[in-house]
């Protein structure tokens, strides 16, 4: 991410230390992750110690300190999805993408994550990609769904 863009975001919040989380969220949203240089810049301009920023950035799941893929896959492992075969769905996705939960592939295309109940149990097993719900998944159908993402 361009450091000038980081500066712009910081300036928008008038370099207020109390806006730290807002600044982090905005960079996360635009860039998909928080690079070290951005954090150093924020620390300098907001006058918040880097150790504190690091604590906050690792505390909330919304932030990532490593690059994330362009598309974020969430596989539901909740009870309803579990009994309908979520484990098989996860296995297949892992096989097709070559990544485990918490990881991102080398092309930065997909990041994989498991979640516990997406709140639409009737559609289980559920796979969500970039917020879009793919319900009643079958192992055979996964490949086509993944292919539709660039």
């Amino acid at each position: 991410m361009d450091i000038a863009r980081v500066d712009q975001i910081i300036d928008k919040y008038e370099a207020e230390p109390s806006s730290l989380i807002q600044v982090l969220l905005e960079i996360q949203a635009e860039n998909n992750w928080l690079p070290a240089e951005a954090l150093e810049r924020i620390s300098e301009k907001l006058q918040v110690p880097l150790a504190r920023i690091q604590h906050i950035a690792t505390f909330y799941k919304a932030f990532s300190l490593v690059p994330k893929g362009r598309h974020r896959i969430h596989i539901c492992m909740g009870t309803a999805c579990h009994v309908r075969g979520a484990t098989r769905i996860l296995d297949t996705v892992q096989e097709l993408t070559g990544i485990q939960p918490g990881e991102t592939d080398l092309e930065l295309k997909f990041s994989l994550e498991t979640v516990n109940c997406l709140g639409c149990c009737a559609l289980g097993p559920v796979m969500e990609i970039d917020g879009e719900t793919h319900g009643k998944m079958t192992t055979a159908g996964i490949e086509d769904v993944l292919k539709s993402y660039e």
Partner: peptide, 9 residues
């Protein structure tokens, strides 16, 4: 100095 901090939760 804040040379040391907590991470994660």
């Amino acid at each position: 100095k804040s040379a040391v901090g907590f991470i994660d939760r």
